[in-house]
Amino acid sequence: MTSGPEARLAELGITLPEVAAPVAAYQPAVRSGRYVYTAGQLPFVAGALPTTGKVGQGEGLVTPDDAAGLARTCALNALAAVRSLTGSLDGVRIVKVTGFVASDPSFTGQPGVLNGASTVLGEIFGDAGTHARSAVGVAVLPLDAPVEVELIVELAE
């Protein structure tokens, strides 16, 4: 495997999207010293949500597997926001992932959904992708998105 996240993106065939336009009064990412904090990123694909609704088991709900794919998309959108400030993902270490899952009240699989984000970060960053994480179930997310992910990353000196 080639070293560095930028090379790994190419190896994995992943092209980061354009930074998603904010849906309210905030910035997609802000740098403070050696850290970049992203806003919560929704699973936008080409400017639109591919699906909406609550995550759970049963008819009319977003499946946990589909939600994990959406969490992956959220993480890639967050990386695009980071790269927009840093110019490159080389020298980036993932510190913290916070994920929110719009959940059916009986659904308790939020950690599994967030594995979609954590797994892709590990594939891209290797050991530098090992992070702390929170997976939170919520009643509703902006635009009725099923998942939202935010990152805290540390930049090399």
Rank of each mutant, 00 (worst) to 15 (best):
V153L: 02
L151Y: 01
A145N: 05
A132I: 01
E6C: 03
P64K: 02
G53T: 12
S88P: 04
G53I: 14
R83N: 04
V147W: 01
A128I: 03
A139V: 14
A135F: 02
A46T: 13
P146R: 08
G91L: 05
P43A: 11
V140M: 13
A39R: 00
V120S: 02
A135S: 14
I14Q: 00
A78Q: 10
T38P: 00
T63L: 13
V101S: 09
K96V: 09
L155F: 10
G13A: 09
A156L: 12
H131Y: 13
A7C: 08
L76A: 08
L42E: 01
S88T: 15
T108G: 02
A71C: 15
D104V: 00
Q110L: 02
L79H: 03
L85F: 10
R93L: 08
A46G: 10
P50E: 07
S134K: 15
N115I: 11
I94A: 01
E18W: 13
T52E: 09
V82W: 01
L42M: 11
I14R: 03
N115W: 11
G33K: 08
R8G: 03
S134A: 12
G60D: 09
G116K: 10
E6P: 03
D104I: 01
G112N: 12
L141M: 04
R31P: 06
E18P: 15
A81C: 08
T130Q: 11
T51I: 14
T86Y: 04
L70H: 14
T2I: 06
Y35R: 12
L114S: 11
T63V: 12
N115R: 12
H131M: 14
G69M: 07
G13K: 11
L16H: 10
A102C: 05
V23P: 11
A39S: 06
T15D: 10
Q57D: 12
S84M: 07
G4I: 09
G99E: 02
C74S: 09
M1F: 11
G99W: 00
P43C: 09
A132W: 03
V120M: 05
T130D: 13
A80Q: 06
E11A: 12
E157G: 15
R72G: 03
A132H: 08
A7S: 12
E150C: 12
V45H: 08
Q110N: 14
A10I: 10
L155N: 04
R133V: 07
L121M: 06
A156S: 15
P146T: 11
